[in-house]
Amino acid sequence: MCQASSKHAAYLPPRNYGAFFRDEYFNTVIESLNYCRKEKGMEIYAYCIMTSHIHLIFRAKDENPGDILRDFKTYTSKKLQK
């Protein structure tokens, strides 16, 4: 589930996928945020990675927060499946 506005988003991974309590998951999320920041125009103001979800406060340079979150989820899921 994902809810987005131009400034805030909360991303909940699928319920049966697991939590972000492992270092490898945490590091993948950080890597994914860096990817979106560098390649997709995400300006991150704050984030909080919880054990079961993520809070982001960001701005999309091109006013396309939904597209950036889609790309974030796609990039993250591909990395976690490896």
Rank of each mutant, 00 (worst) to 15 (best):
F20T: 09
G66V: 12
D23I: 13
K38H: 10
K78L: 15
I54D: 08
L33C: 10
R37E: 08
Q81G: 06
E39S: 07
M42H: 14
S77H: 14
S32F: 05
H8G: 02
R37H: 08
F58D: 08
K73E: 12
H8Q: 03
I68Q: 00
K79S: 02
N16P: 08
D71Y: 03
G66H: 13
M50P: 13
F21V: 14
G18N: 08
G41S: 10
M1W: 04
F21K: 15
V29M: 10
I44C: 08
E24Q: 05
M42C: 13
A9I: 04
E31V: 01
M50R: 00
A60L: 02
Q81S: 05
E39W: 00
R59W: 03
M50N: 07
K78V: 15
A60W: 04
S77K: 15
I54R: 00
A9L: 04
F26S: 02
L80C: 12
N34F: 06
I30G: 09
E43M: 15
M50K: 02
I30D: 07
K73M: 12
Y17G: 01
L12Q: 02
N34D: 05
L69Y: 05
L33S: 11
F20H: 01
I68F: 03
R59H: 11
Y35I: 10
Y17I: 06
E43Q: 13
M42T: 11
R59A: 11
T28R: 08
Q81V: 04
I30H: 02
K82Y: 12
S77P: 03
R15G: 09
N34K: 15
Y25Q: 06
K38V: 10
T74V: 14
M1V: 07
A10V: 14
T51E: 15
I49G: 02
F26W: 10
C48A: 07
I54W: 00
N34A: 04
K79R: 13
K82Q: 09
P65V: 07
C36G: 04
T74E: 14
D71C: 03
R70A: 12
E39N: 06
A10C: 11
C2I: 15
H55S: 02
K82G: 06
T76N: 06
K73P: 05
C48D: 08
T76A: 13
Q3R: 06
K73W: 08
C36H: 03
N16D: 10
T74L: 09
D71L: 00
K61V: 15
S32C: 12
Y17N: 01
Q3T: 09
I68V: 06
I30N: 03
R59T: 09
G66I: 13
S32N: 07
F20G: 04
L33G: 10
Y47V: 04
G41F: 04
S77L: 08
Y11F: 13
F26K: 11
E31Q: 11
H55C: 06
Q81L: 07
K78G: 14
Y75N: 09
K78W: 11
Q3F: 05
F21C: 10
F26G: 02
Y75L: 10
H55P: 01
A10T: 15
S52C: 01
A19R: 00
K78N: 14
S52E: 15
